[in-house]
Amino acid sequence: MERYLIKFSKKDSAKYISHLDTMRTLHRAVRRAHLPIAYSKGFNPHASISVASPLSLGIESSCEYADIEFEGVLEEKEIVESLNSVLPEGIKIIDALHIKEKMKPSMSLVEGAKYIVILKCDEGVELVENTINLILKDETIEKIKKTKSGEKLENIRPYIKDIVIKKYEGNSYELELLLSCGSRGNLSPNTVVELLYEKSDGKIYGHPDIKRNELYCIKNDKWIDLLSYFKGK
């Protein structure tokens, strides 16, 4: 069994493919490409593909990762090329990496994600800055979180690592969000967008155009993107 990390993007209409359907789509592409994917043992064997971090419906991404196990060693370039020739519109493999040593699954390594969000505001950059500062200076921001057993209040502030205005033009603002992501804490960028609407009394508005730009894990107390981590950088 040989493990590979693949990095792929989901753009345009492909952002409307749900997490489960993305796995199904990748699996079928692997089969169309005739790559020797490995299957789990047991009564109900399933293909060994796992996506590092589920992406909410409607969010674009240039940095999706998945662990795939194959029955043998393959050329990384061959994986990229053969999959790209059989993927539907909007999904593209950017890189593949053979992981030879025993390392934790990507899913359990993910700690954070970077999102780019485009929102509107007609009142000038100060208002956007002030709103962001209002959020960042709070120590607790409680939000209702839906869980399997019901609803509970959760402090989401620790999951907001940073919010930065990257650029603006006219009334359009491009914000960069650094948020916790993964099993140890996860915050949807949509929640932060709602917070921005709320804290600005609706002066920040507009349908958010959200894109995930990077997924991080922690190495020596620093955030490092998944691909670099596995490459040993």
């Binding site: 209409s13 492909a14 409307y16 079928r28 409607g58 539907p88 519109e89 349908h207």
Partner: peptide
Amino acid sequence: IGDEILSRVTKPARYTGGEFNQV
């Protein structure tokens, strides 16, 4: 068909097309 529409409906992939083998 804008995102402000597709992001508000159930199963938006019903309306996007773009499947593999679509002509």
